[in-house]
Design a protein around this nucleic acid. Structure first.
Length: 485
RNA sequence: CGGGGCGUGGCGCAGCUUGGUAGCGCGCAUCGUUCGGGACGAUGAGGUCGGAGGUUCAAAUCCUCUCGCCCCGACCA
């Protein structure tokens, strides 16, 4: 396949997954490289996918009582230094502004890698009483983290995301909030991106710097590697105390509020590509697909062109809204190119359905509907299209999720010895559920020797007494190991 | 930071060993013929060969320095 004559040919997914990913992102026009190392230009098609998931997540966040607001891009050095573990964790990744206005600044300004420090300082005066709590804020912005190795969408120096920040009077309430955030992410991942996720807790080593604990959702890509798809942090009183935030509680005692923060980024565009894509390119879940149906008119004569156009117009008019009031996103491809070219064009871009309408179809009062995933073709009467398409899109959405779930299950294995563990990691990959004693040394040894890390301690992992695969000490439950992005 | 590779129209490359004033495919533009799985022909636009310095009558090509990118390693929430 390396000698394919077409410019839009892509690396085979089965030969070289990372090469395939880069090809798809570039050639499906999701994004492009930028003049700045490690940064990317998000193109309209890629941005539209981001907007779909962003809009849904924004609805969920607002529905759970949070309000959007904005904090500045710059964090004064002194603020970033206040929470010791936080600054230590982020230090190598922070970009600094040291000069502005033609002279060196008295105090360097960090370009936010995340906003916890700035927010804790900013809300200090807003929280005086337990009546001011909970304080539920959400920010849509960009952050910068200086990365050594970058990948389009998956790990870029600058990325777009949402960061929620909340403050609560009790630890219990904050813990519930951590769960609320994670649930928003699960809904977007599973119901919109059709990516099944496993929720759980990060190990001490993998948690957010400055957090008491971190919860996350973890997904499997089509190369069986893991990708962290969203994190939610219990900050406890760490940032509150560092910033000196206190409120007067019901019992007239001054207390530091409990904080949480949670984030979801443009990385999920990359996750969607890697969770569903195939040898022909992107496969998009209908709910976030910028175009759900690509119409390819087929004609030779001008007379046919007019007749096809009229038929398409009638279908489009009827498709505007179905009985449930849902519009179907349709693009009619009138470009002066051959039908075959257009077929490949829209398949590369992952459009769920293609609709071919030509003279033969008009004679039969039908159109040919082709499904992206298996390229199956079906003749559908023109008058049936408006009411059949929404249901087919819903079914397609469910099929993608079921397919991804089956793939994940087929690549998840239970292992009880280190020998078996190493064999599975090397020869099969995927998710591995294995006993772990909870010791950081064992965790580190596995990472160094196999490249697999503890992705998560799953919430639904049942109590199960066993021996840690590394040192044989008692393990209470299985944890999820995998090689990860 | 260590090892290796690469910078030539938008993209992918040849040319460099053996200096002689830049070429191919795709893409792009116009016109015509085409159109149910990546059409074809004709014409045309587009490049100070990553940058600086040097050798030479003459440098994409040889020499020196420099910048950038990719891969491997190291480092990583």
């Amino acid at each position: 396949m390396s000698a394919s004559p077409y410019v839009t040919s892509i690396t085979r997914q089965s030969d070289d997954f990372p090469g395939w990913y880069t090809d798809v992102v570039l050639k499906a026009e999701l994004a492009d490289y930028s003049p700045v190392r490690g940064c990317m230009i998000i193109r309209p098609y890629g941005y539209a996918i981001w907007e779909s998931m962003r809009d849904e997540l924004d609805r969920l966040i607002k529905a759970t009582g949070h309000k959007n607001m904005y904090f500045p891009l710059f964090v004064p050095r002194s603020l970033l230094l206040k929470e010791a573990e936080h600054v230590e964790g982020f230090d190598p990744q922070v970009a600094w502004v040291t000069r502005a206005g033609g002279r060196d600044l008295d105090e360097p300004l960090a370009i936010r890698p995340t906003s916890e420090a700035l927010i804790a300082e900013g809300v200090k005066d807003w929280i005086q009483s337990y009546r001011d709590l909970p304080l539920l804020m959400n920010l849509w912005n960009n952050v910068v983290r200086w990365e050594l190795r970058t990948r389009l969408f998956l790990r870029t120096t600058e990325f777009l995301w949402q960061e929620a920040h909340t403050f609560h009077a009790s630890e219990e309430e904050a813990a519930a909030e951590v769960a609320t955030g994670l649930e928003c992410y699960r809904v977007v991942a599973e119901e919109w991106l059709a990516i099944p996720v496993i929720s759980g807790r990060k190990t001490e080593h993998e948690k957010f710097p400055g957090a008491v604990y971190t919860r996350a959702i973890e997904a499997m890509m089509r190369d069986t590697k893991a990708l962290q798809a969203g994190t939610s942090h219990m900050l406890g009183q760490n940032f509150s105390k560092a910033a000196g935030i206190e409120f007067l509680d019901r019992d007239n005692v001054r207390r530091a509020p409990f904080g949480t923060s949670w984030g979801f980024s443009t990385r999920m565009v990359g996750a969607t590509v890697m969770a569903h894509g195939d040898e022909f390119g992107l496969v998009l879940p209908p709910r976030v697909a910028p175009i759900q149906v690509a119409v390819v008119p087929i004609f030779r004569s001008e007379e046919d062109r007019v007749r096809v156009a009229e038929a398409i117009d009638r279908v489009l008019a009827a498709l505007g809204e179905d009985a449930a009031g849902r519009a179907v996103r349709v693009e009619v491809d009138w470009r002066d190119a051959s039908p075959g070219f257009k077929f490949n064009h829209w398949e590369l871009r992952g459009v769920p359905f293609r609709l071919e309408i030509g003279p033969r179809d008009l004679a039969a009062g039908q159109a040919v509907l082709v499904k992206r995933t298996d390229r199956s073709r079906e003749a559908v009467p023109l008058e049936a299209l408006p009411h059949t398409l929404p249901g087919r899109l819903d079914a397609y959405q469910r099929e993608l999720f079921e397919r991804a779930l089956a793939f994940r299950d087929a690549n998840t294995r239970r292992v009880d010895t280190y020998e078996a563990f190493r064999t599975v990691v090397e020869e099969q990959g995927g998710f591995i559920l294995a006993p772990w004693c909870g010791d950081g040394g064992c965790e580190r040894r596995v990472a160094e020797e196999t490249g697999a890390t503890i992705r998560i301690i799953p919430d639904d992992s049942p109590d199960e007494a066993a021996a840690c695969i590394v040192d044989g000490r008692p393990s209470e439950r299985r944890v999820l190991f995998a090689r990860a992005y």
